Simulated assay, not measured.
Amino acid sequence: MFVHVLYEGLLVPCLPSEIEAKLEAGGRIADIGCGMGVSSCLLAETFPKAEVHGIDYCTRSIEQAKTLAVTKQLTNVTFSVESADSLAAKHTYNNLDQDGMLLLVEPLAAENDDPLEQAALPTAHIFAPTSALCLPLFVAKK
């Protein structure tokens, strides 16, 4: 439940305007490392014209994500299991469409890449042991 509140309060309001505009117009987005699909479903709900595809390496998480989408009656979100190698940022960036963007997000991450600042976050004890990425909002254009 805590993750739901974080994403509802931070993910959509903090999206760069370029990404928001593309999703409002019916763009496609891949939520890589989607876990149980909370962020994917939130994006699908917020942007009903967009196509959202959640990807994770954990089969159990994807099963839960699919259940969440069915419960919310979302028809613009799909989920699949893929290997961790195919989920790496470099691989993803290299496979973007010509006008695609790679967005890296970690809820409540520090503004700077400073270990002391990261450790001082109130959520550090929650995210640090489970997250491979602890970073602020970052967008790379193709």
Rank of each mutant, 00 (worst) to 15 (best):
Y7I: 12
Y7C: 08
G9L: 14
S17G: 03
E24I: 14
A25K: 12
A25W: 03
A25M: 01
G26W: 11
R28Q: 00
I29P: 00
A30V: 03
I32Q: 07
G33T: 14
M36R: 14
G37D: 09
L42R: 04
L42G: 01
A44V: 05
E45C: 02
F47H: 04
F47C: 00
P48T: 06
P48E: 07
V52F: 07
H53R: 12
I55P: 00
D56N: 06
R60I: 15
E63D: 11
A65Y: 12
T67Y: 01
T67G: 00
A69F: 03
Q73E: 13
T75C: 03
T75W: 03
N76C: 09
V81F: 11
E82K: 13
A84N: 04
S86E: 13
S86L: 14
L87Q: 15
L87S: 15
A88T: 14
A89L: 13
A89T: 13
K90D: 15
T92C: 15
L96Q: 06
D97Q: 10
G100T: 06
M101Y: 04
L103Y: 15
L103V: 12
V105D: 01
V105Y: 15
E106S: 14
E106M: 05
L108W: 04
D114V: 07
A119G: 02
P122R: 05
I126Q: 01
F127I: 10
A128P: 00
P129C: 08
P129D: 08
P129L: 06
P129I: 12
L133P: 00
C134H: 10
L135V: 14
F138A: 04
V139F: 09
A140H: 14
K141M: 09
